[in-house]
Amino acid sequence: MTTLLSLRDVWVEYGDKVVLERVDLDIEQGSFVSVVGPSGAGKSTFLRLVLGQEGPTRGQILLDGIPLTAECHPDRGVVFQRYSVFPHLTAVQNVAFGLECDQSLLLGKLFGRAKRDALARATEMLAAVGLEHNLDVYPAQMSGGMQQRLAIAQALIKHPRVLLLDEPFGALDPGIRNDMHTLVTRLWREHGLTIIMVTHDIKEAFKLGTRVLAFDKRRIDPHAPNRFGATAVYDVPVTKKTQAEAIAADLAGGAAA
């Protein structure tokens, strides 16, 4: 396995407040990294760093050995918990958006044959996430699960090097969440994706991930709670056995429910 993403001694500080300190990580191509941790432990900051939404105060983030600039780029796709899709575009238009931006710099919109090609590719991608019967529906008419499927299809059409998921299933009910787990696992295998997923659900983290990172503060000064930042305190590779256990536990839980 080759290293895709590296963080070298990364710090994030907002004024006096240290959010992340000394984060040193190598993330391998094809891995599925789950990030867990309590609220305020810098999980989302970590994701924003990799996404390029903000830059580190100190340290370096390398993608394929090249330092990242603090700006979003199509090589890192993202699915947020909410607001990931455009409400004014239908499902197929939402997915075709990424293709249209590529091919039409001036208008961001394709016409004629190029448009038909883009829509055909978007339709294919929607079929891959199980939305082939909802091509011309606006997001407002979709359920939460369908909107997240759409957001995933929208991100995947750009073939990102890394797919970032920010609590993607946090707002879904348990049954739908299970369907989404199956979908994400299948897409991860079929497309050879590298995924970093932030979640609150530890069971979900172990069920899906090949590696689980737990963010928390190593040191706490009770008189200055913001003096020290969080870092990856646990870095657990999920072997087949534990994954099998997680799936077994999940099946048992499902059977009990």
């Binding site: 199509p74 796709g77 990424g98 710099l105 750009k158």
Partner: peptide, 9 residues
């Protein structure tokens, strides 16, 4: 952010 990750300038 999403639009930027989809390549929009």
């Amino acid at each position: 952010i999403k639009a930027q990750t989809l390549g929009a300038n």
